[in-house]
């Protein structure tokens, strides 16, 4: 019976969705715990962990560090990744494929391996615990995401539009600014978003190159949870969960508006 299989498939999807979401959702009640414990289910109710997050300089500084690093990474990786995507798309097919494979290695190589390599180099160059160090390492990790997102846009972009713009009197830079960029912008923006997130929640490399003077938020979460059972971690998790959900919903709504016109 077709309707039976449909119901079955629907239930199965629901099950998968619960499985995927449950670990995230568990964090929300924990963040309102009345006691200083990460036990589940939580006991009592309080806002104190949220208050702690916004008042404790350990948390606020690491949060602003992460924000600064991630914003710089988003800009730098998007520029470099977009240029790389142009190169890969417009090079001869074989060269392009080879370059692409090379450029996405940071995505494939295990994070720990990369982290060790980066740490070794940073020790010599005194980049450990610096914003520059974080930005460099995270940019490298983020470029593949930008490359893939922008390349997908470029592949559906009609190059004849560039020829047309050129015939109408536009030089190469003007063609890029007025025709190419506006049309691949969705890809560039999603690349930038990926780059931001890649940097913002990166932990492995960050653990290696962090210092007591420069901690990012994931490092702070990790050290907090290994030192004591502080539910502030759950409060941070809940805030991040809400923030990312809002961004994604906004993105979806924007996409729907675009699709309608």
């Amino acid at each position: 019976m077709p309707s039976f299989s449909r119901i079955f498939l629907g239930l199965f999807c629901l099950l998968v969705a619960i499985l995927l979401l449950a670990p995230t959702l568990v964090v929300i009640p924990m963040s309102f715990n009345g006691n200083k414990s990460l036990a589940f289910p939580p006991v009592g109710f309080s806002w104190q962990w949220y208050e702690n997050f916004f008042s404790n300089p350990d948390w606020t500084t690491s949060f602003s560090n992460s924000l600064i690093v991630a914003l710089i990474v988003a800009v730098v990786a998007t520029v470099i990744g977009t240029l790389a995507a142009f190169g890969v798309t417009r090079a001869a097919a074989r060269t392009g494929g080879l370059l692409r494979a090379l450029l996405i290695t940071p995505m494939v190589v295990p994070g720990v391996v990369l982290a060790i390599g980066i740490y070794a180099v940073y020790l010599d160059t005194h980049l450990v615990g610096t914003v520059t160090g974080f930005v460099l390492a995270h940019t490298m990790l983020a470029i593949p995401f930008v490359l893939i997102a922008v390349q997908a846009s470029l592949e559906v972009f009609d190059r004849r539009l560039e020829t047309a713009a050129s015939s109408l009197g536009a030089g190469r830079l003007t063609v890029f600014r007025t025709v190419t960029l506006p049309l691949i912008l969705p890809g560039v923006l999603s690349g930038a978003l990926f780059a931001f997130i890649t940097s913002f929640d990166e932990i492995i490399v960050a653990l290696f190159i962090t210092s007591p003077y420069l901690k990012t938020l994931p490092v702070q979460i990790y050290s907090s949870i290994t030192r004591d059972a502080d539910p502030t971690v759950a409060a941070v998790g809940t805030l991040l969960f809400i923030a990312t959900s809002l961004i994604i919903i906004a993105g979806l709504l924007l996409g729907m508006r675009r699709g309608r016109t």
């Binding site: 009609d158 004849r160 539009l161 020829t163 047309a164 713009a165 050129s166 015939s167 109408l168 009197g169 536009a170 030089g171 025709v179 506006p182 049309l183």
Partner: peptide, 20 residues
């Protein structure tokens, strides 16, 4: 002389209007 300096109108088979 590059095409953008030739001041020639061109009409293409696939229209090539800017969709945005």
């Amino acid at each position: 002389l590059p095409s953008h300096k030739r001041n020639i109108g061109v009409v293409f088979q696939h229209y090539a209007l800017f969709p945005h």
